[in-house]
Write a protein that binds this DNA or RNA. Structure first.
Lengths: 333, 333
DNA sequence: TTGTAGGCGTTATCAG
DNA sequence: CTGATAACGCCTACAA
């Protein structure tokens, strides 16, 4: 029966309840300065008309959106689901929402920020999975607090991510401490930032211990590429320890080693990254580095929402992964 | 040197460029009714002051946010990353953004909608991974076009999802057509909607073909639970075909069968769902049903943005998965 | 305890 | 081609 439905405003409610707009507004915010009786009348009118505060009106007045923008350069990257879970969880705690933007083509942070800053957001988080041209020069609009999820330090912005260097060091130390003479590496593709950082960490860790890093096997995250590497590694009897940049390649490598008569962990120890294998492969226990991406997400959001002076300090935060021990490693000692 | 930084408005730009606010607005929208020369002057002023249109002001005026809200009851569920990729891709095409909200605790759509509708969104998408109490009674605010990602039909809202029934039927038919007498099933946990629907589809498909469905093995998506089922299945020599509700359980089952002397596919054929195994397991080729979650995401967004009369029709759309053939199935014919 | 006036930033409309 | 005016919905400040 209602004519063309029309968005209900404070004015409508005020008219229906026979009060002023101001009294309606006060009722919405449950001000004590309204008689209980009046409030009830206003509330009934709101319910009957189906009143819902207009977000634009409120924001225009308040100058805040209670929303944070997240820019992802590659949405389907590993760990993004957990990161998003962290973002939304932390946001929710403070009554914030998360607005998501893809920036797959964008070569620069500046361009991505331009798109994001046209949206109703109070702050921005960039998830940087690959290189951008303007990392160090990038400056966000002064009114948008910004955090970048990356291992690189930025001159003015807070940054943070899983510590990929440390991850590799820990793996190398773990294996050397168990008597292995060196550690072979199956790396991720060149375009992946985290992959490159793990590789660099591995190289440095060996070099610092006076060990010449052996030739790297370049994979593409797929288990097939790990298998290929494994075939080559199997032919070298001196290989006793392999560190793969993700679990899929590690598992591929294990299968190739086994197929070529070298047993894991009896002959060769293997360590991966991500700790995702046990959910999928029941009887192979791969030692792996686990990162807590949800925690990174929580940190980033809290860094932006935190209004304290400490909160606005620039910070560079690295989150340590930890080695989840399974039976794919043998001590030679 | 600038004093307390202050958000730059149209008024500031107008003053700086020596024109009216209206001319600034026209320049922002590149109206042809402004002299090129004037535009240039305004543009320079905008650049110098760092002007950025205020979202709240625009929205208030236009009554539109160009943003869609997505509610996820379980963010880390399988396929959500692809769905999100679909949402954001489709949104982006029309200049829309996606706002994400978790609703893990919320038992009802109504409650989740209440939270979402307080945000600046023009429409809502609910990703329903589990049961809610008020599915059929739920009515969103009239001014928010709403789509629910679910296989169930809703009395007034558009709904759509992967066709889990059809998926199971296809698998059953596929195996029966290759001479298998029946198909055993490793099901997902009871709380999972899609799992239950796959199970129901399997049961119906067999029943319609006059085959009494054998006892179900209830798993929990983990490969370990598939392994357990596999051990039991291996002890029954009449088992020739197994359909697992996801790839992890299927793989667990395969490993158990092999460990108990039954070879896949020589003795037993196995089919899974999700088609994720090949990325992780290099040398096992599991036949599996692949769903295109990205496409579901695209559809949902377009359904909401589409302004045509057809677009506002209620629709119930089921997306077919397809069987990706690998070597885990043998024909008995 | 309730009401009135004014303005947040933008843009449609109409006048010049 | 450009400018003045008013209005979108809400809320702070002040008045009654």
């Amino acid at each position: 029966m209602a004519a063309k439905p029309h968005r209900v405003t404070v004015t409508d409610v005020a008219r229906a309840a026979g009060v002023s707009e101001q009294t309606v507004s006060r009722t919405v915010h449950d001000s004590p300065a309204v008689r209980a009786e009046t409030k009830e009348r206003v509330r009934r009118a709101m319910r009957e008309l189906g009143y819902r505060p207009n977000f634009a009106g409120q924001s225009l007045r308040r100058g805040r959106y209670h929303t944070l923008g997240v820019v992802m350069f590659d949405i389907t990257a590993t760990g993004n689901l957990d990161r998003l879970d962290g973002f939304t969880r932390a946001a929710e705690k403070s009554g914030y929402a998360i607005t998501l933007l893809r920036a797959p083509e964008s070569p620069t942070l500046t361009e991505a920020a331009r798109r994001m800053s046209a949206l109703p957001v109070d702050g921005m988080i960039f998830c940087l999975n690959r290189m951008v041209d303007d990392f160090y020069d990038f400056r966000p609009p002064f009114d948008l607090k910004t955090v970048i999820i990356t291992m690189k330090e930025h001159p003015v912005l807070s940054t943070g991510d899983n510590d990929q260097h440390r991850c590799s060091r820990d793996v190398v130390d773990y294996l050397l401490a168990r008597g292995h003479r060196t550690v072979h590496h199956i790396a991720g593709p060149l375009r992946s930032l985290s992959g490159m950082q793990r590789e660099e960490g591995w190289r440095q860790a060996l070099a610092e211990r006076g060990i010449e890093p052996p030739a790297v096997f370049r994979g593409d995250w797929s288990s097939a590429s790990g298998y290929e590497a494994g075939v080559r590694l199997a032919s070298n009897p001196k290989v006793t320890a392999v560190y793969a940049s993700n679990d899929a390649m590690a598992y591929g490598c294990i299968r190739a080693l086994e197929a070529n008569g070298r047993h894991v962990p009896e002959d060769v120890s293997v360590i991966g990254v991500d700790d995702v294998l046990s959910a999928i492969v029941p009887d192979v226990n791969l030692t792996s580095v686990r990162f807590d991406n949800r925690q990174v997400g929580l940190w980033a959001v809290e860094k932006i929402i935190d209004d304290s002076p400490a909160g606005s300090q620039r910070e560079h935060r690295l989150f340590q992964g930890h080695i989840v021990e399974h039976e794919s490693v043998r001590s030679l000692l």
